[in-house]
Simulated scan of single mutants.
Amino acid sequence: MSSLREMSFLENYEYEAHGDSMGQLLACYNKFSLKVSNLSGNWTFNQERLPEVSRPFGNSVTSIFSRTQPMAAFGAECKRLMEKGVYKNLDEILNAVEGLEFRKQPEESMDQLLLVLNQIGGKAKKIGDAQRFYFQLAFRELFLPDAAQYRDLSGAWTSAQEKYEMLYT
């Protein structure tokens, strides 16, 4: 059942000869992942900085964002933002990706993301579902123009954690 939910974000994305929305979604997500990696200076997990994290969600930006939970969450949130009329299409979301930045030290911010994911993994009954929902909240913070942490890769992780805890703990 969880696998079906992970892939449910694909439902309304379909191939069209004049505009392949699935291809656009994947290109947009790839651009997001590359942007975070570049801005973070190709951050990698360091056990000395995070001794409390014995099994990290990922050891690099690429390994974190190549997992199904953030991918599914990205697709779901893009779909939600377009349905709500915040963005007309994926090209507009791609433009928002271009404006992403770390307002604090990237290393500290990426370490914070791993700490949050570690805490979720330690508390959640259905870890994959919880992580996916957390990532969707984080993407909402990053891409919703009215959000307090709009385009801020430092603040989005902690803001999404606060919202996640209010809703699900």
Results as ranks from 00 to 15, higher is better:
1 M>H: 14
2 S>N: 15
3 S>T: 11
3 S>N: 15
4 L>T: 13
5 R>S: 08
7 M>A: 14
7 M>K: 15
9 F>L: 09
9 F>K: 01
9 F>P: 03
10 L>C: 12
11 E>V: 12
12 N>W: 05
12 N>I: 05
13 Y>H: 13
13 Y>P: 00
14 E>N: 13
16 E>C: 11
19 G>F: 10
19 G>T: 07
20 D>Q: 07
21 S>C: 10
23 G>P: 00
24 Q>H: 13
24 Q>T: 09
25 L>P: 05
27 A>S: 15
27 A>W: 09
28 C>D: 06
34 L>P: 01
36 V>N: 00
36 V>D: 01
37 S>H: 03
37 S>A: 08
38 N>S: 11
39 L>C: 01
41 G>P: 03
41 G>H: 07
41 G>E: 00
41 G>F: 04
42 N>M: 09
42 N>K: 05
43 W>E: 01
44 T>C: 10
44 T>Y: 07
44 T>E: 11
45 F>T: 06
46 N>D: 15
47 Q>N: 10
53 V>S: 07
54 S>R: 13
55 R>G: 10
56 P>H: 09
59 N>G: 13
59 N>H: 11
61 V>S: 02
62 T>K: 06
63 S>K: 12
63 S>I: 02
68 T>M: 10
69 Q>G: 03
70 P>L: 12
71 M>F: 10
71 M>W: 08
72 A>Q: 01
72 A>D: 04
74 F>K: 02
75 G>R: 00
75 G>L: 01
77 E>M: 03
79 K>F: 06
81 L>H: 04
82 M>G: 06
82 M>P: 04
86 V>L: 05
88 K>F: 07
89 N>K: 04
89 N>G: 00
92 E>L: 04
94 L>H: 02
94 L>E: 12
95 N>M: 07
96 A>K: 02
97 V>H: 00
99 G>W: 02
99 G>L: 06
101 E>S: 08
102 F>Q: 06
104 K>E: 09
106 P>Q: 10
108 E>L: 07
109 S>W: 02
109 S>D: 02
110 M>T: 01
110 M>W: 08
111 D>F: 03
111 D>R: 06
111 D>P: 05
115 L>H: 11
116 V>F: 08
116 V>D: 08
117 L>F: 01
117 L>C: 10
117 L>N: 05
118 N>R: 07
119 Q>S: 13
119 Q>K: 13
129 D>F: 09
130 A>H: 09
132 R>G: 01
134 Y>R: 02
134 Y>D: 00
134 Y>F: 14
136 Q>C: 02
136 Q>D: 04
137 L>M: 09
138 A>L: 10
139 F>C: 03
142 L>S: 01
144 L>Q: 10
147 A>N: 08
147 A>E: 10
148 A>I: 09
148 A>R: 15
150 Y>W: 15
154 S>A: 12
155 G>K: 11
157 W>P: 06
158 T>G: 08
159 S>E: 13
160 A>N: 08
161 Q>S: 10
163 K>Y: 09
167 L>R: 13
167 L>K: 15
167 L>P: 06
168 Y>C: 15
169 T>L: 14
169 T>G: 14
